[in-house]
Every structure is written in C-alpha cells, then in structure tokens.
Design a protein around this nucleic acid. Structure first.
Lengths: 213, 213
DNA sequence: TAGATTGTTAATCGATTAACAATC
DNA sequence: TAGATTGTTAATCGATTAACAATC
C-alpha cells in the first residue's frame, strides 16, 4: 500500500466508491468491473482503476473486483474499521437530527454522548445517546476517550468549544458551524460542512441556467 | 461578462470569496488586494485574479478591489440578488435546524413555508415560517411560486418528494438525504449535501495521520 | 483456449502559477 | 511622478484519459 501524496480529488471519490459497493453488497452482487462501476457513477473506468491503484491492486484481470473484497479494502482505507469514538457538542435541532437519523455505524463511528448547556436537556437519552452538561466534557473524556468532536453549537460558542476539543487532543473535528475555527495544530483534522457555500454554488448554477437557456 | 465553461473548481471558490468580502464589508474595510485576500484564504493571488477575470474586470491597477463593489459583483454572479424563494420539505430536526438557524437571507433566499405530513406539526409557526401539510404542496405552489426545494425528509420519502418538486418545475433541489434522487431533467440543478461522504473523508485523514506520524 | 479486464505507462487535457505590460 | 496592483498571456504543474501488455 503506497502512502503519501494522494490527491484531494482521489480522496473525495473514495466515499462514493465505498457507498456504491456497499449498496452492491447489500444487493448480493458479487463482482463489479471498473467499466460497470464507472457507468453507474459517471466516472471513467480508467480513473477508477487509477484511483484504486493508489492503494494497492484489489482486482483481478478478466474478472474485475470482488464486491466484498473491494468494500473491505475501501472501508479499511477510509478508516471505517478503526472504530473511532465521537461526541456531539451542541444538542440543538442539528445535533438531534444527527443523533436520531445519521448512520454513524456506516462510517465505523461510535457515538458516545452528546453535550449541551441547557439544563432541561441534561440527562435525557435520545436514541440511546445521553445528553450531558457541557461542563462535564473534560471529565467525561477522561473516562471515555473519543477521537472525534462533532460541532453543532451556535456560532458564538463554536471557537470556545473547538478549543476545548483541541485541549482534549481529539484527532478530528466535524464542524457544522459557519465559524472559522482557526485551529493551527497540524495533528487535528478539521472537516467543515459549509452549508452556506453549498447553497451558493446551487444558487450560482440556477442563475446560470436562467441566463443561458 | 464571459459566460460558459467556468470550471467547477472556480465555482466552488466563489462562495469563499463572497463570504470573506462580506466579512470585510461588515468590518468597514474598503479595499483589498488579491495578495492580501490570497493570504487570508490560502490561495495564490494569481488564482484569485484568474478566477475573478472569468466574470469581468472588477479591480483597479495599483489599488486592488473595492470591497463594496467586489461583494456586489460576487453576489450578482452567485445569484444572491435574484431573491429566489424556497420551501423546506420535511420538518424534522434537520428542517427545524435550518428554519431556526440558517441565514437564508445571506444567500438571498426567502423561505416561504415548511412541509410535513405529521398532523401535530401542521399550523405551527417556527421563526416566522408556517408548517403546512405535505398534501398542500401543489396548491401552495400555485399561489406562492418557489424556485428551490430543500429536501430534509427521511430517506424513504426522498425520491417521491423529489419527483413532486420536479413536477412543480422547481429550478433547484438542495438534497440533504442520502438517497440518489435520480433526476434526469437537465433544467433542474441538484446539490447534494452528502454528510456521510464528508465524514468519511475526515475519517480517512484521521486514519492517515495515525499511520504517518 | 479466448475473452475480459486489470494495473500501469504514456499522452492529453485542464487548472494553477508565474511573469509582465498596462495603468491607476 | 513612482509604487502598487491589476488583467492576461505563457509556462508549469497535476490530474484525467487512452492505450496496452500482462494475465486471470
């Protein structure tokens, strides 16, 4: 398995491959060729083979890829089998939506707890996840280490809470707030879900479509 | 203003520029050079000038860009001044989170209503937005046309509701469900917020970091 | 075996960066 | 005016696609 210098473009396609072969495995499909996979995803077979070959040789000439094996390999590459633990910081509607509807197991994540500072929420258990008071974050972390913090607080507490996560030496922050967290520690990966940016690209394309019929 | 063939990479940087100059304008900054802007965003000045020049010449030699003008131009390019109208389909936690916390005005959007099929929600007004029954979607659309549908329903109703939006000739769908909507109509822009993919790229980088210290 | 399909090398294409004349 | 900074052209870099020998 060659390490290093995998381009962003490749990394962003991996989850799509993973999601598709997961679906195939559920549908009991046993093998898939880069040609067929490419047709389904709108990607050239060449690119798929090129992407996968960054990580090893998972296929077989004349046959294609074993769906089972490919899924396992992709899962491994994506870290799904690492069983990271996560907590949610901010149990508002967005936090609740994630607790109740997001399939954390799909990404190999265990959701340990959710935090909030509103007293009326503390102690409630939602879909098996207990809401704890934010002030207990550090003591909780000592007893139950976690690697990922999911930031769904209001924008004005974003930086404060992010810094507390940094102090706890989390490895990753999944940031749903619009705030720029300004984390400089190179050991912490921040993935921003910038909904406003997503909506603006949509708006751009809509506007474009109108101008060029 | 040159049309056509703006690359994806450019389009995805525009909202970042917009967001930054919006912040600058709020902070009463009057001018910005591609050099300074580039330093703030981690983008080369060359690229910023190249990107902007796809749409026109907004700067001034020896001076830079007027923050006010640049923001207005970017807003125009992104369609912010089009005042599109939108509705939310699915008033669960995610829909509620958007209604209560997402700044739709920032993208120039008017949120007209929210829909759900659960009787106990119908008629409630949240942050000024009324929840209507899903069955009234079509009659509502007749009286109050909208261009954008925001899809925050459970996965199993995603395709059905998307198709109803297509029939209503919306111009765009902002899809928060994990479902592949399978919309073929080339007049309808679909922007997928694939949270699972976002989390998996984060997981990948976390796993990578661990392997290469 | 013959047909299919991989992994990889080389060729092409597109996006980013550098350079600089134009000019405020 | 002199210094700064644009818009744009050319050079570089990287990513995608095509081609094909290897081989199941």
């Amino acid at each position: 398995m060659k390490q290093r210098s995998i381009s962003n473009a490749v990394i962003e396609r991996l989850p799509r491959y993973y999601s598709y072969v997961t679906m195939l495995e559920r549908a009991k499909v046993e093998r898939i060729s880069s040609k067929t996979l490419g047709e389904s995803l709108g990607i050239t077979p060449s690119q798929i083979r090129q992407d996968l070959s960054c990580f090893g040789a998972f296929g077989q000439q004349g046959y294609g890829y074993s769906v089972r094996d490919l899924r396992r390999e992709l899962g491994h590459i994506l870290g799904v089998d690492r069983q990271y633990s996560a907590v949610i910081i901010g149990t508002g509607n967005l936090g609740l939506a994630l607790i109740q509807h997001f399939q954390f197991e799909y990404s190999g994540l265990r959701l340990l707890a959710s935090f909030d500072k509103r007293e009326q929420l503390i102690g409630r258990t939602i879909s098996g996840v207990t809401v704890l008071h934010s002030r207990e974050l550090e003591s909780f972390a000592q007893k139950h280490p976690f690697q990922l913090g999911i930031l769904t607080v209001p924008e004005d507490s974003a930086v404060t809470m992010a810094n507390r996560l940094v102090k706890l030496k989390v490895q990753g922050i999944w940031n749903f707030t619009n705030a720029e967290l300004g984390i400089t520690d190179p050991d912490i990966i921040v993935e921003n879900v910038h909904l406003a940016d997503s909506l603006l690209t949509l708006s751009y394309r809509m506007a474009q479509r109108e101008q060029n019929p």
